[in-house]
Every structure is written in structure tokens, then in C-alpha cells.
Design a protein around this nucleic acid. Structure first.
Length: 422
RNA sequence: GGGGAGGUGGCGGAGCGGUUGAACGUGCUCGUCUCGAAAACGAGUAGGGCCUGAAAACCCUCGAGAGUUCGAAUCUCUCCCUCCCCGCCA
């Protein structure tokens, strides 16, 4: 959510920024007209309330019964007027909030213009689009041949876009999760284990709602939603708290499964494990002082890149253009790893600084110094990493001509010393 | 699932229809005292809104929402949450 003061004071600048996303500036005008109406009503109703408060005090001291009655009668009318106005204020506030929730975050100056993901500039690369010395196979062929992933069983149990991992496949994933968590803990993140279902408020707070309603699973009976990413529960960890600057930054790493309906990408990436309804992810999340948040974004990105580097996977990092950057983000880097089997770059991490966007929605504040007024803090999130695509890249990069798969060195201690999956 | 208790400021804890945004204690900040500290003493110490150059004033907030009333932390209703006892399941 944007700062209403910014919208109020620099509406043209906000419109100019939104225009980069081909968003009509009329939304800004709508917010402003709600805001003006709201303030007009507020002035009126508050004046009446002040009147009622003072007269009510007088009434309590009045001895004269007749005079008392007159004042009570007068206040009865004032009271009616107040409750009518209060209702109107509530309506206007609701309208304003809804309009505000619909406005995406403004981009950082670094964000380039672009139509879609094809226009995201690569800003860093390590390794290349390597060719294997033999015909590379896609991961689904390798995994099925090795018996470590069953797609048919996934369909049997839960339908398309589900799969079952067996034996060394399941173990490889578990080892990778464990290794990633340990790595991020060494990088200074503290581990959290959260519920995998959350109340609706958490989804508004992180910005999933209202935009991605159709992509989320929900239990009607309890009103709880399955998390689409650990970012959702972690964002709301400190909701409504007032954090002390001395305790910041707070950096968390969380492993969770993620659940997404993927209705918008029906028919896309249907083969293999690239895009499932359920997948695992290790997520980094940072609560930072505003003045540090862009340095933190660079650090976050490096922390994500380190995962790929240590796994021995070729990777590159892009900065997302206006056509691809997420709704809540001011600036995002994507880290992609090379998958020779499918000959494509796979997004394994997306690192974003959402500045105060989530903090406003979640009411995440801190006190800059003792006695100072509370401020919204900046939050950042980045995958480290998404499991399926990491597994794909491992399988396809480490495949051998005979169909066996070498276990990346860093994972071997987590795999009971196994060096080759065959 | 049955029965009981309760949700008030950073924390503890009063208040149970009017001058209480909230006694008292405690924590914290500043000051006095001190060589320094402790103790003692004094002052200050919620968040939001609105307005504003800034402030004051004003409005709202005592789990959430609705209601009664001239007036509600205090009364009524609904919901949420916490704790204790019994039962049940693991």
C-alpha cells in the first residue's frame, strides 16, 4: 500500500510512475476524492462529537430538571446526526482503502521499462549455457528411469501437477532443504517454522490478496488459506508490534511447502516438476531499517546466488523490468540456473525489496530511537531456493551418460555420503 | 465435546454508567543528589486521526463488531482469543 500523504502531495508523480505500468492515473484521482470526502466528513462529525462531549458533561452537573431535559433532547438529535455521519465515514474509508489496496507499489529508479520477462536485463552471470558431452535428457526422463519421481502416482493421488518422490529423489530434496537452511543460518538468518495455513488477513498483509485470490487454496469451513509461499506467514509474524530499532534488522529463513492453484498458467510447464500445485521452498525474509534496505537487497541477492554457486550450477541474475516485476515490489532480482536437459534458464529465486508496501498493510513498525515516532520498516523477501527447479537443475547438470546422477559435493554429507544416484 | 474464569497502557493490576486515556505499582527516559553508582526525590513516558510551519486544541481507541444511553472501559448481544477442571483422541 502506498502512503496516502505521498498520493495527496505528489499525485502527478505517482501517476507518472504508475503510467510506466500502463496503469490509468484515474485510480489516483479516485483515492484523492475519497480522501477529500473523508476529511470533510471527519471535520463535521468531530465537531459534533466535541459538542456532545462537552454538553454531556454539563448535563451530569445540571440540577434543574427542565433544563436537563432540553439539553438531553438536543443531544439526542446530535447523536442521530453523528451516527449517520459515522456510517458515511466508514463507507468512504472502506472505499478509500479498497482503492488503495488495488494500487501496486511504485518502482525504484533502477527498474527498467519493458513489456515482459524477455526484457529483463541480465546484470550478472556465473557459468554458461553449458552443453553436455552427450545428448542431455530432461529431468523427467532421468527421474522416472531412476525411479525417484513418479508422475503417474501423483496424478493418481491428487491429479495433474502433482508428483511423488521416491527413495533417493525424496532424500535429495530433503537434503537440499536441510543444506539450504543451514547455509542461510550461517549467512545470519534465524530459522522459523510457521503454520502452513493462515488467516485471510495474512494474505492481504503480504499483498497476495486481492490480486491472486484465484491462485490460492482455501478451506471454506475454517476460513484458513494454504500458504503459497513462506513470505506470507513470515510477513505477519510481527504484525501490530512496535519493534525497537535496536532489535533490527530481523532476518528469518523459513522452509515451507507452497500451494498454488496455477489456474492462470493452465497448460504451461505441464511436464516434469517445474510448476506443481505443491512444492517446497526455503525463503529468506528481512525486516530492515529503511535506510539500509537497498544494501540489504544486494546482500539478499548475493545470499541467493551463493546457493547456486555452491551447488555448482551455472546461474545468472536479472533485474526485473516494469513488465515483469511483482505487484508489491519496488525492485526485484531474479536468479536463474541453467538446465541443460531442457536447455533453459529456470527461475529459482526472486529477491524483492517491497519497501513499506507490506509493512503498511501488515502494520509493521519500529521506533527509530527512544521517544521518536513510530515508522514503517522495510521488508524484503527472496527464495533461497525454490526446490523443484533446483532439483531439476541438479538432475540435469549432474546427469551422466548412463543416466545416473552425481550428487553435488555440498549435499553429500546430507545424503549419507552417497556420491552417485543410480 | 461439557463446565468455569478472564481479556484494560511496555508489564502487573484497579475501575464496573458521568469530571477515568484510565488509580496504584513497576519498567523506561531526563533531571537533582553523588567522586561514581545504588537509594531517595522531581518531571516525563500509548497509538491513530484531523489540523498545522511546528505545536496546542479537538476526535477515536480499555480483545473485535453491533446495540442501549444525552453520556459506556463500565449495561446488552454476537464473534475471537487466553487460562483452569472433566471427558475424548493422539
Amino acid at each position: 500500500m502506498l502512503d496516502i500523504k505521498v498520493i495527496r502531495e505528489q499525485p502527478d508523480e505517482v501517476k507518472r510512475q504508475l503510467a510506466r505500468f500502463a496503469i490509468d492515473g484515474a485510480v489516483v484521482d479516485r483515492v484523492l476524492s475519497f480522501d477529500e470526502r473523508r476529511r470533510t466528513l471527519l471535520r463535521e462529525v468531530e465537531e459534533l462529537k466535541a459538542l456532545r462531549n462537552t454538553v454531556s458533561k454539563e448535563i451530569s452537573k445540571l440540577k434543574d430538571a427542565a433544563e436537563r431535559e432540553t439539553k438531553i433532547a438536543a443531544m439526542r438529535e446530535v447523536g442521530d446526526r453523528i451516527s449517520a455521519l459515522d456510517k458515511e465515514v466508514a463507507l468512504v474509508e472502506e472505499g478509500q482503502r479498497a482503492a488503495m489496496l488495488d494500487i501496486r507499489n511504485l518502482p525504484h529508479p533502477d527498474v527498467p521499462d519493458g513489456q515482459d520477462d524477455s526484457e529483463n536485463p541480465v546484470i550478472y552471470q556465473e557459468g554458461e549455457e553449458r552443453q553436455l558431452p552427450f545428448p542431455a535428457k530432461p529431468h523427467w526422463e532421468l527421474a522416472e528411469a531412476l525411479g525417484i519421481i513418479s508422475f503417474t502416482q501423483g496424478v493418481k493421488l491428487a491429479g495433474s501437477r502433482f508428483y511423488v518422490m521416491h527413495g533417493l529423489g525424496a532424500r535429495l530434496q530433503r537434503a537440499t532443504i536441510q543444506w539450504l537452511l543451514d547455509l542461510h543460518i550461517r549467512q545470519g538468518y534465524s530459522e522459523v517454522y510457521t503454520p502452513f495455513v493462515v488467516k485471510e488477513a495474512a494474505l492481504w498483509a503480504s499483498g497476495q490478496l486481492p490480486k491472486f485470490r484465484d491462485n490460492l487454496y482455501r478451506d471454506e469451513e475454517s476460513g484458513l488459506w494454504l500458504v503459497p509461499t513462506a513470505e506470507v506467514p513470515v510477513t505477519s509474524l510481527y504484525t501490530d508490534e512496535l519493534l525497537e530499532a535496536a532489535n533490527l534488522p530481523i532476518r528469518h529463513v523459513a522452509y515451507t511447502p507452497c500451494f498454488r492453484k496455477e489456474q492462470l498458467s493452465a497448460g504451461r510447464d505441464v511436464r516434469g516438476i517445474k510448476r506443481g500445485h505443491q512444492f517446497d521452498k526455503v525463503e529468506m525474509y528481512r525486516f530492515e531499517l529503511p535506510e539500509n534496505s537497498y544494501a540489504a537487497l544486494e546482500q539478499l541477492r548475493r545470499d541467493a546466488e551463493e546457493c547456486a554457486r555452491l551447488l555448482g550450477l551455472p546461474f545468472r541474475t536479472k533485474i526485473l523490468c516494469t513488465g515483469d516485476i511483482g505487484f508489491g515490489s519496488a525492485k526485484t532480482y531474479d536468479v536463474e540456473v541453467w538446465a541443460p536437459g531442457q536447455a533453459e534458464w529456470l527461475e529459482v529465486s526472486s529477491c524483492s525489496n517491497v519497501e513499506t508496501f507490506q509493512a503498511r498493510r501488515a502494520n509493521l513498525r519500529y521506533r527509530p530511537e527512544p521517544g521518536a515516532k513510530p515508522e514503517y520498516l522495510h521488508t524484503l523477501n527472496g527464495s533461497g531456493l525454490g526446490l523443484p527447479r533446483t532439483i531439476i537443475a541438479i538432475i540435469e547438470n549432474y546427469q551422466q551418460e548412463d543416466g545416473s546422477i552425481v550428487v553435488p559435493e555440498v549435499l553429500r554429507p546430507y545424503m549419507g555420503g552417497i556420491e552417485v544416484m543410480r
